[in-house]
Structures are given as C-alpha cells and as structure tokens.
Design a protein around this nucleic acid. Structure first.
Lengths: 197, 197
DNA sequence: ATACTAGAACCGACCGGTCAGTCGGCAAGG
DNA sequence: CCTTGCCGACTGACCGGTCGGTTCTAGTAT
C-alpha cells in the first residue's frame, strides 16, 4: 500500500495519511474533518472532493491500513518452508508491524464497532480470513506429519488471540525496545510443545 | 452485582439495566439518553437525577458490568485446588458468561476507546489485574512443580488472549449451543502439553 | 511569447440537524 | 402546603456537509 507509506504526494494520499494520524490519535468521533483537512494541509471542502463523507474517509483509510498489514504478511511469508517457522514468522511480523506502524495498529485494534455495521462486518471478514490462513497452515502441518492431530479451528483462534494479546501489551505500555526474538521464542515454546507431535 | 441481575427495582438500577441493554445494542454514540430513559420506563430528566451526564451513566454501567464479571470469577474459583483445574475453570466461566450475558460481554469487548481516556485507563487496569491473577496462578503452579519453568508474563497473556479470542467467535457468530466442555478440553490440551512439566 | 478561456481543483463561511443537558412545573405523600 | 421525585418541551453547542466563489492548469488562438 503505497498510499500510506509516505511516498505519494497527491492530495488523496495526503488526506488519507492525515486521516490515519488523526483517527488513530482521537478515534472516529472525536476526530474532526476540519482537523484532518488542516493536518493534510488542504481545505475542508477539498476532503469532500475525494471522499463523499467522513464515514467513507474512515472506511477507505481503514481498508488501506488492513491491506497494508495483510500484504506485509503475505509477501514475507511466501518463501518460508516449515510450518513451525511460518508460525514464528507471523509473530515476528505482527510485533514488528506494531512497533513500526503504531498508529495503524491502534486503528486496527481500537475502532471496533461504532463506524457502521457494514465496515464492522468487513473487518470481521478480514480477521476470519487471517484465521483461516493460520488454520490452513496448521492443517498442512498435520498432513505433513509435522504437527499432532487437533481441532484446527480452535488452535488457529488460540494462536491468533495469543499473538494479538501479546502485541496489545506493546501498544498499551508503549514499549518500543523489546526483544522480539525473545518474545517469539517464548510464545513458540508455549505453542510448539503443545502443538508438535 | 445485584444492580444488574434484574432483581432490584429502584430507579437507579432500572436505569443502569436499561443502559446496559441499549449501550450493548447500539454502542455509546448511537445510544440516545432518551431511549435509555424510555427503555427504563422513566423520563429523560430522571436519568439526570441519578447520573450527572451520559458519560457518567456509561462509566457506572461499565463498572457494574466489570465487577459482575470479575466477582463471578473470584467466587467460583475460590475452592479449586490444582492450577490445571483453575485454568480450565477460567475458560469455562468465560464462555458461560458470554453465553449467559451476551450484552454485557458485548460491552466489555467492543467499547474500547471513545469514552474518554480515564475510563479507558480504568478498563486497561482491570484487564491487567486479570492477567496478573493468571500470572500468579501460573507462578504458583511452577513453584509447586506442577508446571515447567517459563516466562509467566507472556504465558499469562497468551492464555488470556487465547481465551478471549475463542470467546469472541461465540459472540460474533452468535453460537449459543456450543459444547463448552469440548472447547475447554481442546484449549487446555493445547496449553497443558506446552505448559506442564 | 502572450492573451484568453474553459473547467478542474480548491477553499472556508455558512447552514441545518441532532442531541446532551436544563428548567419550570406537576403530582404524590407527609 | 411544602418537599421530594419526576418529567419532557426546550435550548444551544457542535460539527458534518454544502455551495458560491477563487485560483490554478492546460489547451488554443493570435
């Protein structure tokens, strides 16, 4: 997602980036369209040239963030081979992402409901997608004989929930300098011994 | 928390219960004070006899919910002996609570930010309290030789996150008739084999 | 090169709807 | 008849969205 990485200078991207910053800092309701416009260095009217409403602005920004997050994952998981290593890599990526893009992480975690049923639904779908991905991974591990037999749905949710929860601590406590490797090893230790055959 | 269990009939409790229902269904911003008053069978002005603002009403309601949730736990965990069994019991209680009090669960999970820094902080404190409780439990298990040595902070967060995530599925998919025992066994299976010595 | 112009891009003062919160008054009961 | 509890019509702040006007850009003619 080039629109969010700070490189594009067109108005739409400028507004989108400003929106990410302001929404992350204040949440949907406290964020004022005027403030986003100010932050983006454009007039309030200009915002409405590119987005039909505050809601749509949020929706677009949110989708960009999600895409960015998911793409980072897909790209960096492509060339791993063992399931064990892939799972570990998911933890690493999640933690790194949180450190590097804390405002985006803030948005992805905090804004749950409140923005309308439709977007909420979309968000849940994306989450389910990710869980499905982990599920597949685990299933593959079982088929390959790398992992013991288990309920893959529950296992995927347990893994996902655990990773998010540990990541949450980093956001909440504002810890920037953590030993990602150490945390990963600990989490994987907990999982593997319960997971591997 | 007797104020929320439907038994007390004084105006304040009536309003608190109505607030829980409406806030759960609509979220903080879409919920109208007038609607809560209507639901409680009182006039809008009356709400302001008992609560100084909409925010305070939410705050009080939220605290009641949290207390209710936490008390349920403390009460029913008091007389368990083995750590293994206590951890399992936490999962059972969490899942049962979600099924029995889905609107409250909705509130506890959804409303994260948006209501003001102060309450948000309070909520995080409560969550940390719960994690600390789990941490203690695990530490005790280690000391007793029931569990292997590990980073208890991470382990507690992993456990907490996993339980919440699996519970989340029940809320989201509206699954009422689940085999709690089966889910518990699966989760505990995943954990124990990674946790026990 | 310069002048002209259409229309795209941009802007911010203003409008209007929506509630949170108020307040004057009513009813019950002591 | 006074106090206490209750009520809901009203008020005013707030902010999303609009719109008339301005500036910028690029195409064309001279």
């Amino acid at each position: 997602m080039t629109e969010l990485d700070g490189s594009s200078t067109d108005k739409r991207s400028q507004i989108l980036r400003a929106a990410a910053r302001v929404f992350a800092a204040k949440g949907f309701h406290k964020a004022k369209v005027e403030e986003i416009a100010l932050e983006a260095g454009v007039g309030k009217g200009t915002v409405y040239e590119y987005f039909s409403s505050k809601k749509e602005l949020f929706r677009e920004m949110f989708k960009s963030c999600s895409m960015f997050y998911l793409e980072t994952f897909r790209r960096r998981l492509a060339d791993e081979k063992s399931v064990k290593y892939k799972l570990r890599q998911i933890i690493v990526l999640h933690l790194e992402f949180i450190q590097r893009h804390s405002e985006i992480a803030m948005i992805l975690l905090h804004e749950h409901a409140e923005i309308g049923e439709q977007l909420h639904q979309w968000m849940l779908e994306k989450q389910e997608e990710k869980i499905a991905f982990i599920k597949e991974l685990i299933q593959q591990g079982i088929d390959d004989g790398e992992l013991r037999n288990m309920d893959v749905d529950i296992a995927a949710r347990v893994f996902f929930g655990a990773v998010v929860a540990v990541g949450g601590r980093l956001i909440i406590h504002g810890i920037k300098e953590v030993d990602v490797d150490y945390i990963c090893d600990e989490i994987m230790g907990l999982f593997l011994e319960g997971i591997k055959k």
